[in-house]
């Protein structure tokens, strides 16, 4: 294939995936809000409400506080959104390979997730509000706490895959080609289950959702990191948050549930791609409902010392157990 055509395809793919992820992110946010409302005995907003929210925010005045560091304050929302959307470029959706296939792996994703978090920290700190300062501290502490178990999960899986194949073990495409559940015994399956639980426990903190929404904690620090943001900047953070939910759910799907439906139904060709693509989004929706919606309506907010202790001690220990079981399973 000639290089120019390749570049055109990639650019179109990047634009397509960017718009797709924003659209799905906002749509899923609407579904999440509606479902959460029903779980709480409320009616809830219309499913398309997030689109109206973004539209409204984009029309609103963008207020910058007097004592803010203006250029930082205005730049970081873009960083948050761009780094989050970039992750979607590395995620294989169903049978389709990732847009940026070959130029990055799961380690890049972990870094990009961190960039999204750090840009919120920078944005909060540059806004000059004491609430945002508290929120920034909390986001930093939360990030330091959950990164270790998160990376443990990723490395455990990659290590196990590296024993199966010579393909690059950290590439997400390899994860989809070698669904680990099929290659492990009972002990290994148990280990995988434990690693899955660890990843599910990390996700609410990664996404700043209840019960881990300490950096924003509306009743405590009035929205924390986002307290001074309004208008366009807030809209960008809002979209970034919505996309991040999809990103984390997709990551769980790719790492643990890469199975496709076309093989089961015995369909092949172009229809199979469409079917697998749709099935991928259904799986993402399922993970989001399980791990974001139903958890955030079922618990009170934790405190920062409780979060740090929980992730450093029991959750990290759990990930070690998972890795240990995988290793034992392979040795047997």
């Amino acid at each position: 294939m000639n290089v120019a055509l390749l570049i055109v395809v990639k650019v179109l793919g990047v634009i397509g995936v960017a718009f797709l992820s924003v659209f799905v992110g906002l749509l899923y946010k609407g579904i999440d809000r509606k479902l959460a409302a029903h779980m709480q005995g409320r009616v809830g907003p219309p499913i398309l409400q997030p689109f109206w929210d973004v539209g409204k925010l984009l029309q609103k005045e963008n207020i910058v506080p007097d004592n803010a560091v203006v250029w930082l304050f205005n730049t970081v929302p873009f960083f948050a959104l761009i780094s989050t959307i970039t992750i979607m470029m590395y995620i294989p959706m169903g049978g389709l390979p990732p847009v940026l296939f070959g130029s990055g792996d799961v380690i890049v994703i972990v870094y990009l997730l961190t960039i999204a978090g750090i840009s919120m920290v920078i944005g909060g700190s540059s806004s000059g509000s004491p609430y945002a300062a508290v929120g920034a501290q909390r986001e930093m502490v939360t990030m330091i706490s959950y990164e270790l178990p998160l990376v443990m999960v990723v490395i455990s899986l990659a290590w196990r895959i590296s024993k199966l194949t010579n393909l690059p073990a950290f590439s997400l495409l390899t994860f989809t080609q070698y669904p680990l559940w099929s290659y492990t015994g009972i002990l290994g399956g148990l280990g995988l289950l434990i690693l899955l639980i660890v990843l599910l426990m990390v996700t609410p903190a990664e996404l700043s959702k209840l019960p881990m929404d300490l950096p924003e904690a509306e009743t405590e620090i009035a929205g924390g990191l986002l307290v001074e943001y309004s208008g366009r900047n807030l809209a960008l953070f809002y979209i970034a948050d919505a996309v991040k939910v999809v990103v984390m759910s997709s990551l769980i799907v790719v790492l643990f549930f890469p199975y496709e439906i076309s093989g089961v139904l015995g369909i092949s060709g172009g229809v199979a791609y469409v079917l697998d693509f749709l099935f991928f989004w259904v799986k993402v929706l399922g993970i989001m409902i399980l791990d974001v919606t139903s958890i955030r309506v079922a618990a009170a907010r934790f405190k920062i010392n409780q979060v740090a202790t929980a992730y450093w001690m029991p959750v990290f220990f759990l990930s070690l157990v998972g890795l240990g079981l995988l290793a034992v399973d392979m040795a047997l």
């Binding site: 709480q40 005995g41 409320r42």
Partner: peptide
């Protein structure tokens, strides 16, 4: 009080 704890489900339950 439940709302202050971030537990909105209890808020809606007790208000119901």
């Amino acid at each position: 009080a439940a709302h202050e704890l971030g537990f909105d489900t209890l808020l809606h339950y007790s208000w119901q």
